[in-house]
Design a protein around this nucleic acid. Sequence first.
DNA 1: CCTGAAATCTATAGGTA
DNA 2: TACCTATAGATTTCAGG
Lengths: 187, 187
Amino acid sequence: MDAGGEADLCLLTRFTNRKDLVSSIKHGRLKLDNRDVRILSILQKEGRIPKAALAERVNLSATPCWERLKRLEEAGIIERYGAKVSMKAFGPLTQVFVQIELEAHHAENFARFERAMADIPEIVECWAVGGGIDYFLKVVVRDLEAYQDLVDQLLAAEIGVNRYYSYVVTMPVKEEPVPVELFAATD
Amino acid sequence: MDAGGEADLCLLTRFTNRKDLVSSIKHGRLKLDNRDVRILSILQKEGRIPKAALAERVNLSATPCWERLKRLEEAGIIERYGAKVSMKAFGPLTQVFVQIELEAHHAENFARFERAMADIPEIVECWAVGGGIDYFLKVVVRDLEAYQDLVDQLLAAEIGVNRYYSYVVTMPVKEEPVPVELFAATD
DNA sequence: CCTGAAATCTATAGGTA
DNA sequence: TACCTATAGATTTCAGG
C-alpha cells in the first residue's frame, strides 16, 4: 500500500483541545489519512519500533510522523502499548470459551454479573452478546480441574447464572489485530 | 506484590544459547522468578515504558533488568509489542462471535477450513474447540450487512461449513491480558 | 548486580513550500 | 497546514568491575 496518497480518505482536522478530539472520535467525525492508518497498522505489530524507523516506513521525516503519532495517542486512537506474553511461558495452560445464560434479565441482574466478572482474574474477556445467550467469556486456567473449581465458584456465588456451556480450546488457529486498513478506507 | 523475593518461584537458569532457551520453554522447564513475572506484568499494560523506569519498578538498576528483558524477548516469552488501537477510530464497528460446525471431520477438512481462515482479514480470531462445536471465530465488520456478506462468502467458498451460529457483541464488559502473576507462582 | 560512557533515539526549535 | 533539517536532551546498550 502506498503511504503517500490521500485518496478517498478524509484529512485529519485540527482541534483546539483534547476534549474536542476525543468527542470527535466518539462521534466518528475524526478522519485519518493513509499515513495515519499505516502508522497504526505498523504499531499494532511493532509497538516498540523506533520513531525514526516508523517515519521512514511511512515516507516521512521524524517530526511530522512524531506529531501524527502524538495526535493518535492523545485522541485515544492508540489506547495503550502492551507486550504480548506467550502462554507457554508458564507451562501448559488451558483456555475455555464459556457461554452464559442468566436467570433473569433485569438491569440489576446484568450489573451484578458484570461486577463479579471484574473480580475474577482468570476471566480475561467478557462480552455481552445477542443470539439467545447473554455473555461470552474467555477463561484462562491451569487445567480442567481448575476450570471446574472456577465454575463451581461462579455457580455458588449467586450472581444469577442459569446455564453455562463450555468450549475448551484445543488449538489456536488465528489471532490478529483488527485490520485497520480495511475499515479506514473509502468513507 | 514484593518484587524482591524469590520465594517458591524457581530461578531462571542460564543457557549457553538461544536454542536451549527456546526448547526449555517449549518443554516448560524455564522458570521465572518474581521479578521476571513483574516485568512481564508491567509490560503487558505499559509496553513502551522506558527501561530505566521499568528497572526502578522492580527494584533493579538498568543493566540487570535489561538483561532479564532481553532474555524474555529472546526466549519468546515476550512474543511481540503492539499498540492497542481503539475500534472507535473508524466509526462504529460490529463484533460477532461465530460458532462453526464442519460437515466432516477428516484431517483435510480441518486443514482446508483453517487455510481459508488465514485469508480473511475480518476474521481476527479463530480457535479450534471441543464441546460439540468445531471452531470459534471472532469477526470484526462494519455492520450486520457486511457480516451477512461475509457469511454468504464463507458458505459459498465450499470450505466444509455445515452450520454456523452467530452471537453479535452488544457490549464489551472486560478485556484483560492473561494474569501472569496467577500462573507463575508456586510451581 | 553495579557504574559509567558511547551509541542511539526522542522531542523541539526554527525554517521552507 | 504540512513538511523539512538540525540539535539538545533522554534513553538504551554494553564494557569493565
